[in-house]
Design a binder for these strands. Structure first.
Length: 518
RNA sequence: GCUCUGGUAGUGUAGUCCGGCCAAUCAUAUUGCCCUCUCGAGGCAAUGACCAGGGUUCAAAUCCCUGCCGGAGCACCA
């Protein structure tokens, strides 16, 4: 009585089960989801969450180019925390260096798109270059509090003094004088390198990195954004970020280990202002295997300029644009990133972690098809005029494909049976190689089950679709079954015994696909 | 040189704060088997780690010391 029902339920896909269950018992679904969520808590708890009404975090990208894989860690981790704590997330473009790390005007939107690809959405987006006046105001407050002085020392001079824990000649400057100098900086009366505003920390601080750091400097190059093009006096990251983190009520800062000393540096500012510093967590550097190109915006830029890569979405580029084009789901990247946790030691991310996470997401919904690479043409005698492999092996209900077979097939060289040997053309039937012809043998599937006949994919030698598959190791060409013509750009397919691909382009009857992974 | 910071299987991670239930978790990877008309998915199994040496302790991955090896900062970059 019950067994047949169980069987039917087991045949349903997970989604279908869930939908059906939702009709029968909505509470049970909520419970299931809660369980799933609890299991998915991959990240350790943030410190002192209970002390804050709301967890407020920020992404602070520098928009100096499209994102690579390493950049994904920030939104992956912070976005995941946002959903864990139902928190708030700012995206603040730290674009206060018009010269050395010059912003790329396309990168602002590009980064927002990348965040969206990863499945997150900032609650608010701001650009530091729109907020320069705010930084000036706080600089003036800092001067009033005795926390800053204007300094004309060269980098080398100051560096030497700092190394010896000696104050520079300007350190004793009074607030009025500093105000006057700072006004001149803001008015653009100095050129690059002539004057900086330093924070008066503690010149005898045992950590040299914390001694009287630069808060503002002069930059001659105009900012690429028109709205900010007139500014010449720019805040350094430590100043700008410190002010903004407070003004946006950021409770938790999560950032790279390279900014380890920032909290201590900025602590001097917070002390002058009487503010409380947010909780800070750091993660270490990550490296990704399987790529010859380092995770660095500038080196990717170079390879593109030199023509070694076709662009930011070249399959060989370790960029998010490349993964997206290859059909990797953003969620798979996030899963792999959160799995890395927030350890401060450096880590190697293996692409297999991303692929595995992606396979989990994609296998269920992806239709199957045949692609024969470097096909070898073999005449076929006898047998039916078409094969009918399933659209998806676990879902008979999705139907069967119609793969024609007239009088010859293409097989991959490694699949061609030796003279006298048999092979099973998947979804069609068994053949034996007799003098270079494949002769239908009219045997049942038991030859596969019991006699170890290999099952191979195939395609009609004449009725097929030319396919170019772009992979990390270069382009591969092949021929696919005619049915692939029914799919459109952005669809995913699994070429059986080859791997997953994303359809990228259709020109006439020619298909370009990007290889995702096996 | 000065100052931070870290070191658990190939990779990542749990455990380390509050020593025992850790001959160490989970995932991925690799290999083998099962299942399957895919080399996908699923199932089962195997492989494989506490950086080293001392100390404290009845007991140490966990606490202490030393050493070794990493990573980061000491920018008028972010």
């Amino acid at each position: 009585m019950i067994a047949p029902v169980c069987e039917r339920v087991n045949d349903l896909a997970d989604e279908a089960k869930r939908d059906r269950l939702a009709e029968v018992d909505p509470d049970a679904v909520a419970e299931l989801e809660a369980e799933a969520e609890a299991e998915e808590q991959l990240l350790p708890d943030l410190p002192d969450v209970a002390d804050h009404e709301e967890v407020r975090m920020r992404l602070a990208p520098n928009p100096n180019g499209p994102w690579h894989l390493g950049n994904a860690r920030m939104p992956a981790v912070i976005g995941t925390y946002k959903s864990m704590y139902d928190g708030w997330m700012l995206c603040r473009f730290d674009d206060t260096d018009p010269e050395t790390k010059r912003p790329d005007l396309d990168a602002y939107d590009g980064i927002i798109d990348a965040i969206d690809y990863l499945g997150f959405e900032p609650d608010e987006v701001v650009r530091a270059s729109d907020r320069v006046e705010t930084y000036y105001e706080h600089a003036r407050d800092l001067i009033d509090a005795g926390g800053a002085y204007a300094c004309t020392c060269s980098q080398e001079q100051f560096s030497e003094l700092k190394a010896d824990a000696e104050p520079c000649p300007h350190r004793g400057q009074d607030a009025d004088e500093t105000h006057a100098e700072f006004d001149r900086m803001v008015a653009g009366e100095y050129e690059s390198g002539e004057m900086v505003l330093r924070v008066r920390t503690d010149i005898e601080q045992k950590n040299p990195a914390l001694r009287d750091w630069v808060a503002f400097r002069m930059v001659d190059t105009p900012h690429p954004r028109e709205a900010a093009a007139e500014y010449r006096c720019w805040p350094m990251l430590d100043f700008q970020s410190a002010i903004d983190d407070h003004l946006f009520d950021i409770t938790h800062i999560i950032r790279g280990i390279d900014l380890q000393d920032s909290a201590k540096r900025q602590g001097f500012l917070y002390d002058y202002f009487g503010w409380e510093y947010p909780e800070v967590t750091h993660w270490g550097r990550i490296e990704v295997d399987e790529y010859d190109v380092p995770l660095s915006t500038s080196s990717i830029k170079e390879r593109i300029a030199e023509g070694e890569l076709d662009g930011w979405d070249d399959p060989r580029a370790p960029t998010l644009a490349s993964l997206e084009r290859r059909g990797v789901r953003g969620g798979a990247v996030v899963a792999a990133m959160t799995e890395l946790g927030v350890s401060t030691s450096s880590a190697d991310l293996s692409m297999s972690a991303i692929y595995s996470a992606n396979r989990e997401r994609v296998d269920e919904g992806t239709d199957r098809a045949f692609l024969v690479r470097d096909g070898e043409r073999l005449p076929v005698d006898g047998g039916p005029d078409a094969g009918h492999p399933p659209v998806h092996p676990e879902h008979e209900d999705r139907g069967r494909r119609d793969v024609p077979l007239d009088d010859a097939v293409l097989l991959e060289p490694g699949d061609v049976p030796a003279e006298g040997d048999r092979v099973w053309l998947k979804g069609w039937g068994p053949v034996r190689n007799e003098d270079g012809r494949l002769v239908h043998t009219d045997e049942g599937i038991e030859v596969v089950r019991e006699e170890g006949v290999d099952v191979v994919h195939w395609v009609d030698a004449d009725e097929n679709v030319p396919v170019t598959m772009r992979t990390m190791d270069g382009d591969v060409s092949g021929r696919a079954e005619p049915g692939v013509g029914d799919y459109g750009v952005d669809d995913l397919l699994q070429f059986e015994r080859v791997g997953f691909v994303r359809l990228d382009d259709v020109v006439g009857d020619e298909l370009t696909t990007y290889f995702t992974h096996a």
